[in-house]
C-alpha cells in the first residue's frame, strides 16, 4: 500500500527515509506539479514524503549579507514579503506571475527548482540574483548554484534521492536592481513560452555586474554572457544591443527549434520590458538613497 509521511522535522524525515529502504520515494512540496504528473499512477509500494510541515524548510529572513529563504515558502508568501520585494525584486516578479492564486498559495520555490521544468519561473530569477541552494543530505550540507541543481537535462535535477533543498541564500547587494518577466499564451495563469531574469548594479543610469538568465531554452535558467556584456554598453546603444544579444543567444541555444523565430521576437519584447523595469527600479533606488542621505 502507498504510504504517506508528513515529518515534523528534518531529523524525523531522516529516520523515515532511512526506514523506507528500497521503496520508490516521492517528495511532495506544494504538490502542484506532482499531482498532475502522478495522479492515478503511483506504484503501490511507493512512499510519499510531504515536506511542507518541516519548520526548518520555512522562513524568510534578512541575515545581513544575504536573505535566507526556506525552500517550502510558497509563491504567495514570497511575493508578498517586503524583504524579497526590496532585495530580490526579480524573484518577487517571478513568484507573483506564476500560475493562478490557488497555485501560488501551494506551489513552493524549492519545488519549482526541483521539478526543473524548462518553463519554470523562479529558478531563472534566483540564478540572476546569484542565489545559492543549500542542500541537506545525511552525509552533510552543501551549497550549490541554481545552475548546478538544474544541470543540463530538462525536467530532471542533479540531486540524489536523499538530497533535500533546505533553503536559498540570496545575496543582499547594495545598489543592485533586478527584474523578471515572462511571456505565455495569456497574461495570467499561463506557462512561460520564454522568460527573462536580470540583476545588475545600477549607478547613474549605467549598469554593471549584470547577470542575465533566460528560461525555456533547454533548461529553466540559461546564462547569457553576451546579454550581460550588452548591458554595459553606453545608454544610447544599450537597448538595441541588449535586444540583439538576447536574440543571438536564443539562436545559439536552440538553433534548429521550430519555435526559434517566435522566441527571438518575443525575447526582444522581454528585453525592452525588463530593461525598462530595471531602469525604473534603479531610479527609485537612487531617489530613496538621496532621501535617506538628505
Amino acid at each position: 500500500m502507498t504510504g504517506l509521511f508528513a515529518p515534523r522535522s528534518i531529523e524525523e524525515l531522516l529516520s523515515l527515509l532511512a526506514g523506507s529502504g528500497e521503496h520508490e520515494k516521492h517528495f511532495i512540496a506544494g504538490g502542484t506539479d506532482w499531482l498532475i504528473k502522478n495522479r492515478g499512477n503511483i506504484s503501490e509500494d511507493a512512499v510519499l514524503f510531504d515536506l511542507s510541515k518541516i519548520p526548518e524548510l520555512r522562513g524568510i529572513e534578512n541575515r545581513g549579507s544575504y536573505l535566507r529563504l526556506g525552500s517550502m515558502e510558497t509563491m504567495t508568501s514570497i511575493h508578498t514579503d517586503p524583504e524579497i520585494r526590496l532585495h530580490a525584486a526579480a524573484l518577487c516578479d517571478a513568484a507573483s506571475s506564476m500560475g493562478s492564486v490557488q497555485i501560488r498559495n501551494r506551489a513552493t520555490v524549492g519545488g519549482n527548482l526541483a521539478n526543473a521544468s524548462p518553463a519554470a519561473d523562479t529558478p531563472g530569477a534566483l540564478a540572476a540574483l546569484n542565489a545559492s541552494a543549500v542542500i541537506f543530505s545525511p552525509s552533510g550540507t552543501k551549497e550549490l548554484s541554481i545552475e548546478e541543481v538544474l544541470g543540463t537535462c530538462p525536467n530532471k535535477n542533479t540531486l540524489s534521492d536523499s538530497d533535500i533543498i533546505m533553503e536559498f541564500r540570496i545575496p543582499v547587494r547594495k545598489s543592485h536592481v533586478s527584474a523578471f518577466k515572462k511571456i505565455g499564451s495569456r497574461s495570467e495563469v499561463s506557462i512561460a513560452r520564454i522568460n527573462l531574469a536580470v540583476s545588475a548594479k545600477y549607478e547613474d543610469g549605467a549598469f554593471c555586474d549584470a547577470m542575465v538568465f533566460v528560461g525555456t531554452l533547454g533548461t529553466a535558467a540559461k546564462r547569457s554572457p553576451e546579454a550581460e556584456n550588452a548591458l554595459l554598453m553606453p545608454i544610447s546603444l544599450r537597448k538595441e544591443g541588449f535586444k540583439k544579444a538576447l536574440c543571438e543567444f536564443a539562436g545559439r541555444m536552440i538553433p534548429s527549434r521550430s519555435t526559434l523565430p517566435y522566441k527571438q521576437s518575443a525575447i526582444q519584447a522581454l528585453a525592452e520590458d525588463v530593461l525598462e523595469m530595471l531602469e525604473a527600479r534603479g531610479r527609485s533606488l537612487e531617489k530613496s538613497g538621496e532621501k535617506s542621505h538628505g
Partner: peptide
Amino acid sequence: VDKLTGLVK
C-alpha cells in the same frame, strides 16, 4: 497588438 510578442489585448 504587441508586434514583438504577438499577443493581442
